[in-house]
Design a protein around this nucleic acid. Sequence first.
RNA 1: GGCGGGGUAGCAAAAUGGUUAUGCAGCGGAUUGCAAAUCCGUAGACGCCGGUUCGAUUCCGACCCCCGCCUCCA
Length: 481
Amino acid sequence: MLKIYNTLARDKQEFVPIVPGKAGMYVCGMTVYDYCHLGHARVLVVFDMVYRWLKASGYDVHYVRNITDIDDKIIKRAAENHESIHALTARFIAAMHEDADALGVLHPDREPRATQYVPQMLEMIGRLEQNGLAYRAADGDVNFAVRKFPGYGKLSGKSLEDLRAGERVEVADSKHDPLDFVLWKHAREQEAEEVKWDSPWGKGRPGWHIECSAMGSQLLGKHFDIHGGGADLQFPHHENEIAQSEGAHHCKFVNVWMHNGFVNVDKEKMSKSLGNFFTIREVLKKYDAEVVRFFILRAHYRSPLNYSAAHLDDAKGALTRLYTALKGAPPSPALPPEGGSLLPSPIGGGTEGGGGGVDWNEPHAQRFKSAMDDDFNTPEAVAVLFELANEANRSQSVEAAMQLKALGGVLGLLQRDSVEFLQAGTAVSELEDAAINAQIEARIAAKQAKNYAESDRIRKELLKAGIVLEDSAAGTTWRRA
RNA sequence: GGCGGGGUAGCAAAAUGGUUAUGCAGCGGAUUGCAAAUCCGUAGACGCCGGUUCGAUUCCGACCCCCGCCUCCA
């Protein structure tokens, strides 16, 4: 039985899908005006893990992750670059896909862009106006009237009084209430035609919050199962989504709200404004993408995750242990189809996923399942992986190794060939495989001649270049430190 | 100020009212020409003060400290 922490309830609750056997999930994705940083990586990986676990649990999942391709920052950046917003967003959407693929993130079922759903947004704004929840302000904007919506604040646990008391926003005169937010922004003279759409309220463009309400209900229905995003979206973004959706449709919007914790740097949230962010591609120059994925999944999704080189090194060492245990495992039956990993057969049978299947009756798998069912407790699930690695090492059991690999696959990990992982490099100037092998040959010759001084010299030299040699009965192998 | 989340061994990170988390690092041993890897064993913890309890890191209360949201933000 899967339990999920629901922000709306402030508690873990049993997941009960609206339609038995199906799950609809919407996650707020990126605003594409720059490269994704590690904070974005966390959302991508965390909800990819949720998506995979729901699938592994046998749900027919419909996963929607949107792209915000029209907003103030995009307009600003495009103007700075002297390029169209289309050119700008196209570039960063491509970059985001590259980053997501590298991290083993499966493609969502749908990836709607805000600019493709303007008609649906207009329709929704019209409904809100009809329902007396939207009004046209003096400046031409259409705003949502927060105080007309009774449930406002239920997600974030804020009351309108509290919000007003601590108010730090400069009040836009045109708003009836300082907390009202914009649904439709009137067009500005100087703006490009590209960012102007016709509407019953004049030319303009959508406010940020309305896109998720419109796309969510369009693609998943007016009422769906799971909505996720970073913890910083809880308020106001998700609060506003609820107000818009429920205000327009008069029915519950989302059953389960999930929010992932931040990536921190020196205990502070990684963010653009603080300038303490690291882009995914920057980090991937130094660290293997799977190490980054493992680093993220090793912490619980709701906990803060502190980023530092030392922590990534630690994650690398841990993942190396897992892959080392996989050395004796048979090679993968096939490469995964889309940048990710094999999806093992769903719990309770089924053959989908082929040879990557998990034996769910095995004790480790049962513990793994219990952990994942307990609000996606990946740290616990990963601990089970290490116990399986120990088992595989101790007993030299191929079954244990295969089970390890299969369970790792549920998290999108451990699907590469072990040697490939252990020898994978990331630095620019590295020894070629041929050079390494030549050195190894030379060392073997020295060893056979009992010239240990020479063999040790060669090993030390390789170690300086980051190459660790391992002698065994089967011969000498190498990996990168 | 309002609301919310935390403080676990050297580092990272879970669970749990009484019994081994787990990974890295440490220590002892096995193995190795020496190593590495691996295995076996071992040490080390629950912010502070009270309370409940036969027993609390785990429940309750006070306190100290950290972080987040309240403004665009994953």
